[in-house]
Structures are given as C-alpha cells and as structure tokens.
Design a protein around this nucleic acid. Sequence first.
DNA 1: ACTGTGGTGTGTTGTTCAAT
DNA 2: ATTGAACAACACACCACAGT
Length: 373
Amino acid sequence: MYDLNVIYSRVIALFSSDRDVDVKDVLAYELAPVPTAMFTEDGMRICKAKSTLKKSLQIEVSRRNAGDADVTVIDGSALLWTIHWPADGTVADFIENVKTRLTSYLSESDVYLIFDRYYDYSIKSVTRDVRETGVNKKHHLLLSTKLPAQKVVLSSIENKKQLNLLLCEELTQDRLFHLRSTNKHKLVVTGEDPCPIEIKMEERRTRYDLENQQEEADTIIVQQVLGCAGEAHQISVVSDDTDVFVLLLHHYHQAGLDVPLIMESPCKGRAIVDIKSTLAKHSQIVKNLLPAHAISGCDTVASYYGLGKGSVIKVLKAGNDLSAIGNVDAPFQQVLDQATAFISACYGIKESTDIKLREERPELLPESTLDKL
DNA sequence: ACTGTGGTGTGTTGTTCAAT
DNA sequence: ATTGAACAACACACCACAGT
C-alpha cells in the first residue's frame, strides 16, 4: 500500500535540505497513487452517503397509486437480506423461504431475478477487501449444512458466492417449484452464467438475447428492464440501491421510454419511487446525473473530502455541463475540463476551468480549500 | 444489504464593530 | 471606504445505534 505520511515527510525533508526544490514542481505530481483528497490511511474511502442522492431526488408514490406491474426485476443480493433467516435451520430451509417469496411475486407478474457475480481479480476486489471487515469466517455450504448466522454468510463474499450458486441451482432445477409457481408467469434467473435461464412450467430455455458479462447486478438489472420495456405495461424494480436508481433514471431518459416504471424496496412498506415522475421533475439535470454521481463518489470511486451528494445536486442544478464524461468520442481534454470545472464548483469556485488557477488568481483559492484539495 | 435518527463536530457565511 | 477580528447562525458531514 501507500503511506501518505512517508511521502509528506520526505517532501518536508526535501524542503529543509539545501537542495533547490520548487514547491510548484513537487505539487505538479500526484504524490500518491490516488488523489489525496480521496482516501484515508486504511485505503479508499467509499462514499457513505449515497442514499442521500436518491432521497433528495426521488418522488414517492403510495402503494395504492403504484398500480400493478406485469414485470418485476429483482436485485438478488438485496432480496436475500430481507428474507426470514431461520435461526435454527439448514441452508435448504432458507432456500425454501426464498422460493416462497418468489412464488408471491410470480403470482402477480413475470420475474427477473438477478444475482451479483463475483469474478476473481476484478476491479471490485479492492472494494471487497474493505467491506469484509468483522466476521470473516469461511464456511463450506451445502444444502444440508446448518445455516450460519446471517451476517456471516451475507457479508462474506466467499460464503455469499456459495449461497448464490446453490440458490441458482435450486431455482433452475426444482421442477416441483416450477410447476407450482410458474404456471401463470415466467421466471428468469441470472446467476454466474452470462446468459439468464428462463423457466415456464416444464420449459427451460436459455435467454441468449439477454447475454451479459457484467459483474454488477445493478447494470444487469437495468439491461433487463430495458430489454422488456417494449412488451411490458408496467415494470417494477425491486432494489433500494442508489446506483440502480441513478442508472434507471439515466437510461429511461436516454431510451426515451414511456412505460410506467417504479422502484420498490424488497422490504414491504418502504417507499415506492416513481421513476417516470421523478424524471419529469428533474428533467433538466438527468442528463448530467450519471456522470455527476460517477465522479463524486460511488462504489468504485472514492468520494471527495467534504463533498456530500447534497452539494453535488446543488451544483448540478446550477447548470454545470458534464456531457463529455462517459462519451467515448469526446476529446480527453474536454472530459478533463468539464470534470475539473464541476469539482471546482463543488468546492465553491465559480469560473475557472484551468488548473493553473492557483497561480493566476490565488485569491479564489483560500487556504481552507487548499487543505481540502 | 439498506433506512432512519439524533447527537457531535467542523467549516462557511454573514454581521457587527473597531481600526486603518 | 476598506479591511480584519470576533462572533453567531447555519449547513453539512460523520458516527453510532437501532431497525427491517
């Protein structure tokens, strides 16, 4: 890892030595593998207040007015947390509970169930290491295994991976479950395999049209929502992740959809978000919402010191443009300029897009801001 | 996994007053 | 008239805890 203190003391030592060192010269380099505003000693600091973004933008709708969806897309990892965890049972008992829950969804609508994938050596492994604090006991899970504590299974990647695997296996193989639950609507399960499996009674087919190599359930959810947007009359997404919320808003806008789309939590009684009216209310900022969320801190991007999602939205509403970010055709300099301008605006610096600012107009960059940067 | 709440601490802004 | 210091009010981020 890196040690900011070591770097800092070396620089101090350089200054105090006789060698001719220019401050500007030193500061022209990164001095650290990640920008210093972004991390704490123990690594990257992940944005903790993601949910404020969702909370301040969302438009709630009551259960009664939400209407009935004919397609339900479910985030598997969020679902697992809310299903009754048998205190004194086996893994099979828990899976049985999952099936019961799915059956209740299946009686209303088609169900697309999506689990996180865990590829080795992905960019996310770093994030995982941070998250896996606390209990870290690895179990070997079989159907007949006595179920360990919820926390142990669901917060350890290794254990969760096994549980997901067992679940997918069971959901796609259990014919009794298929006959009982999929007589009215179909079930599409997405697990480790790139192609989802569709089940309808005795039929079992692979949905090559929905093939996806993505690791994150978030993006797969959105892909499948878009995939069935054509036929469905109303879509419901079961997830309370902010990332999903942002992605949905963005793509709903991009694709110019018109289907009623709601987002509900796997826990009954939580707020239900109406994506369509949320979009209508914030139509002037959706275009820049995804890039803004991306650079101001999300799962794999550390957030900036002292910048919450609240101020980001404020700056966004002031009309800062971020259209080049995420656009593969945009020249790199433009991307850089826009991002710089945006982050500057977040720290309260109004006009300049140039990093040379500090030399030209030092009065715009007070000490306190410098400390942050 | 996420939500929600209350308490705490920090930083920013705006006001007043006095001195230059 | 301008500047700086001191102060209060406010907003925001952070943390711990409890809950589903």
